[in-house]
Amino acid sequence: MDGSRTKPRTRIEIDGREFLLDGDRDLVDLMSRIEAAARSEPTFVDISSRGGLVSVLVSPGARVVISVEHEGRESIDHTPPIAPLSDWDL
């Protein structure tokens, strides 16, 4: 399958809670609303997730991580390889 035809999957994590976003969601608009909420008094931001509508209270100290993955592609493991225990000098 051509990588450009894979359907993107967007994950957003706010203070450790993860949400899967709908595919038709305007990500740039959502990021702008989260940024605005983080610069103001705590404010609710509505997120249309695959499970329905979620309102999240965003404050200046909120930790937000957004990732976009393409379905059908293998994830890359960036952790360094660890040698088997038998190869270590104990």
Rank of each mutant, 00 (worst) to 15 (best):
G3E: 11
G3N: 07
R5M: 06
T6C: 08
T6S: 12
K7A: 10
K7Q: 11
P8A: 10
P8Y: 02
P8D: 10
P8K: 10
R9T: 12
R9E: 14
R9G: 04
T10Q: 12
T10Y: 08
T10S: 14
T10N: 05
T10V: 15
T10R: 14
R11C: 05
R11E: 13
R11D: 10
I12R: 00
I12L: 01
I14R: 06
D15Y: 11
G16V: 10
G16R: 08
G16N: 11
R17I: 15
R17A: 14
E18Q: 15
E18S: 12
L20Q: 05
L21W: 01
L21C: 02
D22I: 09
G23A: 11
G23L: 08
G23S: 13
D24P: 05
D24A: 15
R25I: 11
D26I: 01
D26G: 04
L27K: 04
L27W: 01
L27Q: 05
V28Q: 13
V28I: 03
D29V: 05
D29E: 07
D29P: 00
D29I: 05
L30S: 01
M31H: 07
M31D: 10
S32Q: 14
R33T: 05
R33G: 07
R33M: 06
I34H: 05
I34C: 06
I34N: 01
E35G: 15
E35C: 14
E35Y: 08
A36P: 08
A36V: 07
A37N: 12
A38T: 07
R39W: 03
R39I: 03
S40Q: 14
E41L: 02
E41S: 08
P42S: 05
P42M: 02
T43Q: 13
T43R: 09
F44A: 13
F44H: 09
D46M: 07
D46E: 13
S48W: 04
S49V: 01
R50W: 02
R50H: 02
R50G: 03
G51I: 06
G51H: 10
G52K: 07
G52H: 08
L53G: 15
L53N: 14
S55E: 09
S55W: 02
V56C: 12
L57K: 14
L57V: 11
L57A: 15
V58E: 01
V58D: 01
S59H: 06
S59A: 14
P60E: 03
G61S: 10
G61L: 02
G61M: 04
A62F: 00
V64M: 00
V64R: 00
V64S: 00
I66V: 14
S67H: 06
V68A: 06
E69I: 07
E69S: 13
H70F: 12
E71W: 00
G72N: 03
R73M: 08
E74Y: 04
I76V: 15
I76C: 09
D77N: 12
D77F: 04
H78A: 09
H78P: 00
H78Y: 08
T79G: 07
T79N: 10
T79I: 02
P80C: 01
P80A: 10
P80R: 07
P80L: 06
P81C: 09
P81S: 11
P81A: 11
I82K: 14
I82A: 13
I82V: 11
I82M: 09
A83F: 03
A83I: 05
A83Y: 05
P84R: 12
L85A: 14
